[in-house]
Simulated assay, not measured.
Amino acid sequence: MCGRVQPCVLTVLLLSFCSCFVSSVYFHIGDTEVRCFREEIPDQVVLIGNYRTQLYQQSGEYSPATQDLRILVVAKDPDDELVLSRPFSSEGRFKITSHKAGVYQICLQSNSSQLPLSAGGELMVHLDIKVGERTNNYTKIAAEDKLTELQLRVRQLADQVQQIKKEQNYQKLREKYFCDISHNTNLWIFWWPVVRSLYVVAIITWHTKSW
């Protein structure tokens, strides 16, 4: 059964590779409305979210949000434990480091007393989430460490190799998880008819003795 999981793993890896080209999303939220995203990441990987907001006018136009607008960012780990809960300004970024491989949930909520939102207006949020090696600012790294172009390229390749290793380790954990589920399911399918048959035999025997 574990061998059948291999195509699924390859599919997940292909989808993960393709998702690297998706840089950002945007969405509308009302006052106190919550929007959540789920990000599947390996262990000990950095996740950075950059965002900016705009006010949506009833006329269909957008205007910059003022500084008193607050965005509450809440992040939870795969065990549903809180790893980040902090209000940010109308534009900024948040950062978390995974301490366990799995699916992390990131929620954004607008919390403002601005008239357009409180009167039923909407807020447009541009969100860009980067994970792992994509979070590194190599221009800044090259300037701080005084790296040549070749040294910087070597650094990038080394970081990419580390990211691939983490992804592979995470996929191995997922494969083991699915194999365990398959094994337990097969055991249940095998033993359930046996238990049911024994139960029927016990009922028939009890009724026979009672007669």
Rank of each mutant, 00 (worst) to 15 (best):
M1R: 13
M1E: 05
M1F: 04
G3T: 05
G3I: 07
G3P: 05
R4C: 13
V5N: 12
C8G: 06
L15E: 08
L15P: 06
S16M: 11
S16E: 10
C18Q: 10
S23P: 12
S24L: 05
Y26V: 08
F27L: 14
H28I: 08
D31I: 07
R35T: 11
R38A: 13
E39Q: 08
E40V: 07
I41H: 02
V45K: 00
V45Y: 00
G49K: 04
N50I: 12
Y51M: 09
Y56A: 12
E61Q: 15
E61A: 05
S63E: 09
S63Q: 14
P64I: 06
A65S: 07
A65C: 10
L72Q: 01
V73S: 02
A75R: 03
K76Y: 05
D77C: 02
P78E: 01
D80T: 01
D80M: 01
L84V: 01
P87S: 06
P87Y: 02
F88K: 04
F88Y: 13
S90W: 13
F94Y: 10
K95P: 06
S98Q: 08
H99N: 13
A101I: 00
Y104D: 00
Y104F: 03
Q105Y: 08
I106G: 10
C107K: 00
C107H: 03
C107R: 00
S113L: 10
L117P: 04
L117T: 03
L117C: 07
S118M: 15
E122Y: 12
L123P: 04
L123I: 09
L123F: 06
L123D: 04
M124T: 05
H126C: 14
L127I: 04
D128M: 13
K130V: 10
V131W: 02
E133P: 00
R134G: 08
N136A: 07
K140A: 06
E144C: 05
E144D: 04
E144I: 07
E144W: 09
E144Y: 12
E149Q: 10
R153N: 09
V154A: 03
V154K: 12
Q156S: 00
L157H: 03
E167R: 06
N169Y: 02
Y170V: 02
K172C: 10
K172N: 03
L173D: 05
E175W: 03
K176Y: 11
K176T: 15
I181P: 08
S182N: 12
N184T: 05
N186T: 15
L187A: 09
I189W: 13
F190Y: 10
W191R: 04
V201H: 05
V201P: 01
W206F: 12
T208I: 15
W211F: 07
